[in-house]
Design a protein around this nucleic acid. Structure first.
Lengths: 251, 251
DNA sequence: CGTTTACTTGAGGTTAGTCAAAGAGCGTGG
DNA sequence: CCACGCTCTTTGACTAACCTCAAGTAAACG
C-alpha cells in the first residue's frame, strides 16, 4: 500500500531531532506499521480501561489526551499532532489510564505491540530513541503540572501556544508565525483547567496586548519574545535543539 | 562491598510488582551500580541544567523533584521514596530540566549510563521493565496535572496521601495505616501549589473530618474509603495490582 | 531560657468560578 | 435569499476559593 510507505515520515522527522536514525532503522519503523485507519472527529482513538494490543501513531490531525473527573468534567493533559506516538506507552502499561480523542478527523497508523517487542529485541538504538520519546512525553506532563500549579490563566495559555508552536514547527506544520489550533474555547478551558468564561477573558488578554491573533482555528504569534516572557517559557523540555536556536533569534 | 550486594532490593521489589524478574536480571541490575553515596538533607542530588553521566537510584530516604518558577517559587512535581530510580530518564534526556532534592538524609546508588546502554543492548526484557518504570513516572505526572487542575486543595492533599501510602506499601515502608511523611507544611504547599496559609487550613479539613492523623512526620490514615472518595483516587495509574486488592478491601 | 522554625489564626484582597443572557457565525431548509 | 437553529463566543453580576499580609502560638534545640 503506497500510503504505508511514507506513514512514519512525521515520526521519523521528530525522532531525527533527537538523534540520527539509520536507513535500516527507518525501514524497521515503517515495517512495524500493520494498518492505516481514519478516525472521525470527536471519536476516541484510545479508550481508558482498555488494554490495546497495538500502539497508535498519529499521522495527521490533532488529538487530545484526557482524564474524566468525578463530577464529569474533562481534564486534557496533552495535545497531540502529526508524528506523535500517542500511546506508545500502552505497549508497556496496560490497561490505559486515560483516553485520547480526535480533535479533528485523524489518520493513524497501527503498530502492533508484537512489532514493538521485536524492536526491543533486535534494535537497541531505535529502542532507546522510542524510549526517549516516551520520556519527553513525561517531561511535557511535568511542565503542564508546573504550569497548572504556578501560572495564571493567561500565562498558561501563552505557555500552551509556545509549546504547540515549537512542536508543530518540528514536523513542519507552521507557516511563518501562523499555525492551526483546532480547539474551541471550551476544549481550551479543559486543557487550562479554567472555566469557559474565564478562558474567554484570558484569550482577550493576549489579544489586547497584541501578542497573538486568533481567528477561526488559526493562531498567529505577533510577539514571540513577549509571549515567552508571559509564559515563563523555557523550551528545553521539548528537546528540539534545532528549533531552539531559531526560536531564540526570532523577533 | 557488602552494601552494594543488596542495593537494588527496593527497586527489584518494585519492578517485580510489574513483571517477574529472573535471577540473572536482578544480578545485572546489581552489577550496574558503580557506587553508593550519602546525600545530606536539603542537598540537590540531581541539578537542573546538568548532563549527568549516570542515573540515581534512591536506596533510602525521601526526595522531591522540582522546578523553579520565574518568581522564585518552587513547584514540586513528585515525591520519591526508596526504590525509585529518580532520574533514570537522564540516561536518555539531557540536560536535566529539573532538580531533585533530598527531603531527608538519603542513600543513593549511582548507575553509570554506560551500564544502562549495555542493558539495552543485552537485556531486552529488563530494558522493557526499566522503560515501564519511566512510563509509570510519566503517568504519575499526568495524575498530578489532573489533580492540580481539577481538584480543590483538600482533595489534592488527600490524593497525595493515597498515592504515597500505596507507593510506600509497595516497598514495605508502611506500618499498618501509618507511614512517614517528612514534609513540612511549606514543602507540602510547594507540592500542592497552594500558599502555606491555605495548606494549613486544608490539612485541618482532613483532620477535623477524622480522615487522617498527622503528628510530627507520621501520617495515619483513619478512614481510607473516605480519603479515596475525597481524593477521587483511582489507583490504576500506579500499576500495583497486588496492592489494589488489599487497598480496596481495607476499611 | 532564649532563639529559631514550624504551625495556626484573622482580615481583607485577587483570581477564577457560576449563573444567566446576549451576540456572532454557520449550515440547512423553506 | 432569508429564517431558523445550532454552536461558539462574549459580557455582566455575583460568589467561592485561594492569596497576601500580619501577628500570634507551639514545639524544637542549643
Amino acid at each position: 500500500m503506497a500510503s504505508i510507505t511514507s506513514a512514519t515520515q512525521p515520526l521519523a522527522a521528530k525522532l531525527r531531532e533527537y538523534e540520527a536514525l539509520s536507513r535500516e532503522e527507518e525501514q524497521v519503523l515503517e515495517s512495524a506499521v500493520s494498518a492505516i485507519r481514519d478516525i472521525d472527529i470527536n471519536q476516541d482513538m484510545v479508550v481508558e480501561g482498555e488494554s490495546p494490543d497495538h500502539s497508535t501513531l498519529l499521522l495527521s490531525g490533532y488529538a487530545a489526551r484526557y482524564n474524566m473527573t468525578a463530577d464529569g468534567r474533562r481534564q486534557i493533559t496533552a495535545v497531540h499532532i502529526s508524528g506523535d506516538f500517542v500511546d506508545l506507552h500502552s505497549f508497556l502499561m496496560r490497561p490505559m489510564d486515560h483516553s485520547i480523542v480526535a480533535l479533528t478527523p485523524c489518520r493513524i497508523a497501527v503498530v502492533p505491540h508484537t512489532a514493538l517487542t521485536r524492536i526491543t529485541e533486535t534494535q537497541p538504538h531505535l529502542t532507546r530513541i522510542l524510549w526517549l520519546s516516551t520520556v519527553i512525553d513525561g517531561g511535557i506532563h511535568r511542565k503542564w503540572a508546573v504550569a497548572l500549579g504556578s501560572l495564571q490563566g493567561h500565562q498558561q495559555l501563552a505557555h500552551l501556544i509556545c509549546e504547540l508552536y515549537l512542536r508543530l514547527k518540528q514536523v513542519d506544520l507552521t507557516d511563518g508565525w501562523t499555525f492551526q489550533l483546532p480547539l474551541t474555547q471550551t476544549l481550551l478551558s479543559e486543557a487550562l483547567a479554567l472555566s469557559t468564561v474565564h478562558t474567554n477573558r484570558v484569550v482577550q488578554v493576549l489579544r489586547k496586548e497584541n501578542v497573538i491573533r486568533w481567528e477561526r482555528d488559526q493562531i498567529t504569534i505577533l510577539d514571540w519574545d513577549r509571549l515567552v516572557e508571559i509564559a515563563e517559557f523555557d523550551p528545553i523540555y521539548l528537546r528540539a535543539p534545532r528549533l531552539l536556536q531559531e526560536g531564540q533569534s526570532a523577533a
